[in-house]
């Protein structure tokens, strides 16, 4: 149905072209999908997805308020998908559906199907504990445990039984900190509280903590919004490296960040997924009026 719409639009564009020289940019703008149209356009499916969401609705306050509306989106393997959109558009809500963090919110209900490796995570027999080990999360505000740096990293592997002895733990802690690019800075003070690090270091500590349990997907909810540009740059480099091993879904307010780190971008607006596609296309050549308005700074 949706695919049909896209192809229809393409036909429209072709017609406008009329076989002549490529349509000038100005002219193309006029052909954008109008604002009132809320169905997703663009390619939301990927081949062999890691996670796949179909017809996802989220309600808050025991169904009184619908937060997101009929979302269909795939998350591919080894890719970074960025979710952008104005405040309150539902991008964070959607992200939190992916590891069922919304379960902790009283009166929140999720419908539709979200699968990871073809298994529905909202199925009746699914345990959220292993799910969250499989789908890790990094939060907006760095939130290390008020414990030592070492314990911050070691906690996850310990509770999941990934390590058997002190040596294994030491190795995993070092490995995780190295991958998070934090090892050099903290190797001499592993026993000091994680809360004593700078904001950027804390966020990298949280990332290290997440990858210590070796997840398949990492969700990042505006991971750099509390950081300065230098710390942000370090984190962005880190994300770029991590995508070799993980699927990463990142919510961000910064369009520059989205364009720098992601391969695909999804644009959310008032609970609807408006447009999804390759990042370059979304930023250079958006198909939907709302997407265009947002990325050109007309609102948001």
């Amino acid at each position: 149905m949706r695919l049909l719409k896209v192809s229809k639009m393409q036909t429209v564009m072709d017609k406008g072209g009329n076989g002549g020289p490529p349509m000038p940019l100005k002219k193309m703008r006029k052909e954008l999908v109008p604002r009132k149209e809320r169905a997703t356009i663009g390619q939301f499916e990927v081949e062999n997805p890691r996670m796949s969401c179909r017809n996802v609705d989220v309600y808050y306050n025991h169904g009184e308020k619908k937060a997101i509306n009929n979302i269909n989106l795939d998350i591919g393997r080894n890719e970074v998908i960025a979710m952008i959109g104005p405040s309150g558009c539902g991008k964070s809500t959607f992200l939190r559906c992916l590891n069922r963090m919304n379960d902790t919110i009283d009166g929140c209900r999720v419908t539709g199907t979200i699968t990871i490796d073809n298994k529905n995570i909202y199925g009746k027999d699914v345990d959220v504990v292993p799910l969250r080990a499989q789908v890790g999360m990094v939060f907006q505000k760095p939130n290390p445990f008020p414990k030592s740096i070492y314990d911050n990293i070691a906690y996850g592997p310990k509770i999941h039984g990934l390590v058997q002895n002190r040596d294994e733990t030491d190795g995993l802690v070092e490995q995780s900190l190295r991958r998070a690019g934090l090892w050099k800075e903290v190797k001499d003070r592993l026993d000091q509280p994680g809360t004593g690090l700078s904001g950027g270091q804390q966020q990298r500590l949280c990332i290290a903590r997440t990858i210590a349990v070796n997840p398949e997907v990492i969700l990042m909810d505006e991971p750099c919004s509390a950081l300065d540009p230098i710390a942000t740059a370090i984190i962005e480099d880190l994300i770029d490296e991590l995508k070799q091993d993980y699927a990463i879904a990142i919510v961000t307010h910064s369009m520059q960040q989205a364009s720098r780190v992601s391969q695909r971008t999804a644009y959310f607006h008032l609970g609807d997924l408006i447009e999804v596609g390759p990042t370059d296309q979304i930023f250079l050549n958006p198909l939907h009026q709302l997407t265009e308005d947002y990325i050109t700074g007309r609102f948001g």
């Binding site: 292993p130 799910l131 999360m137 939130n143 906690y155 997440t210």
Partner: peptide, 27 residues
């Protein structure tokens, strides 16, 4: 106890009891 600590524990895959016993209760 700030919710961020609870989210951190849950986000890493701690069960509710582990979250309470390991993080919330000590704080």
């Amino acid at each position: 106890v700030p919710p961020s600590i609870r989210e951190a524990a849950l986000g890493i895959g701690a069960s509710k009891t582990q979250m309470v016993a390991h993080h919330v209760l000590p704080l």
